[in-house]
Design a protein around this nucleic acid. Structure first.
Length: 293
DNA sequence: ACACAGGGTCAGC
DNA sequence: GCTGACCCTGTG
């Protein structure tokens, strides 16, 4: 692996376990879009980045080595050995083997805690394209304009202050619908520091989870997603309709509908790799339509 | 056309 | 612990 800068690109030769499609389309993030040339452009930490894989060369455009080390290295979870994780999961059974092969190159991004809280509140009983639409609308309406890339303007995710004090009409127009009260209240909780969601990182998973569940619009499933995608906790197992289906298909009787028990089953099975296992299974199930009637 | 479900959560029994 | 309502939109 060789890392170097060329103009405004950071290039990594001989990259392993990095497949942009699987990273950006596995359902963990909502601010990355595919360009016509197959690359992906998105916003994180107030910066615009374009990502393209050519063979085993990763090209990060619109950035520099300084930002790579400060932001993107951690954002893309570069220090984690996904080959080792995949190998461990794949040897458990044929389903995990298939799911890890299918999702090869998927990585769990380290995303901003508050952005993940709001995004996954929006995700409840919603479809992924609509979640992306709402998040894009709110960012454009309330977020700071951070620059232009390939002729398009980009906006940072709104601050807690902006989201907690905006006109109700903005939330209505964003189509977050019945979730608008949750978003305003959750944003105020962070803005007022009634709870500092960023500090939950320092708590054990179960305590952080208990805290998250006090936020309006945050239940068992959304809190697990926040822990996994926004707080770097991997001993969680978010159970949504797809994980439910894939678990019924592969591991447990269909009569077992108690989501709490399915979650405990997953954590018991996958331990400290539950979150990552869940993401391989979720992506595999959703792309293949496993269990859909 | 129109019912149904989409990365669930909450309030009211 | 269960059950229905919740906004809006794409899908069949």
């Amino acid at each position: 692996m060789k890392l170097y800068q060329e103009n405004n690109k950071v290039i990594i030769d001989k990259i392993k376990d990095f497949e942009p499609k699987h990273i950006f389309e596995c359902g963990q993030c909502f601010r990355w879009d595919k360009e016509e040339d197959g690359s992906y452009t998105g916003v994180a930490n107030g910066k615009i980045l374009n990502v393209k894989l050519e063979g085993d060369t990763l090209i990060l455009d619109n950035t520099n080595l300084d930002d790579y080390h400060k932001i993107w290295h951690n954002y893309f979870d570069m220090d984690r050995d996904y080959s080792a994780i995949k190998a461990e999961l794949a040897k458990m059974d044929e389903h995990l083997y298939n799911a890890t092969i299918f999702g090869q190159g998927m990585r769990i991004l380290n995303q901003d805690t508050f952005e993940i809280v709001i995004s996954f509140i929006i995700s409840a009983r919603n479809a992924i394209p609509m979640i992306k639409r709402s998040v894009a609308f709110l960012s454009k309406a309330l977020g700071e304009e951070i620059g232009e890339y390939r002729g398009k303007k980009y906006y940072a995710f709104p601050t807690p202050k902006a989201l907690s004090s905006c006109d109700e009409q903005v939330l209505i127009d964003s189509k977050v619908a019945f979730r608008k009260g949750y978003i305003r209240d959750a944003s105020y909780i962070q803005h007022s520091l009634q709870m500092d969601m960023y500090k939950l990182r320092n708590l054990p998973t179960d305590m952080a989870r208990k805290e998250l569940m006090t936020i309006p619009g945050v239940g068992p499933k959304v809190s697990d997603c926040i822990l996994l995608f926004g707080l770097s906790k991997y001993d969680v197992f978010p159970v949504d309709v797809w994980v439910q289906r894939v678990m019924h298909e592969f591991y447990i009787e269909k009569e077992m509908k108690d989501l709490k028990k399915i979650r405990e089953f997953g954590i018991d099975m996958f331990k400290d790799k539950s979150g990552i296992a869940q993401q391989y299974l979720f992506y595999y199930a959703r792309e293949k339509g496993i269990g859909r009637k």
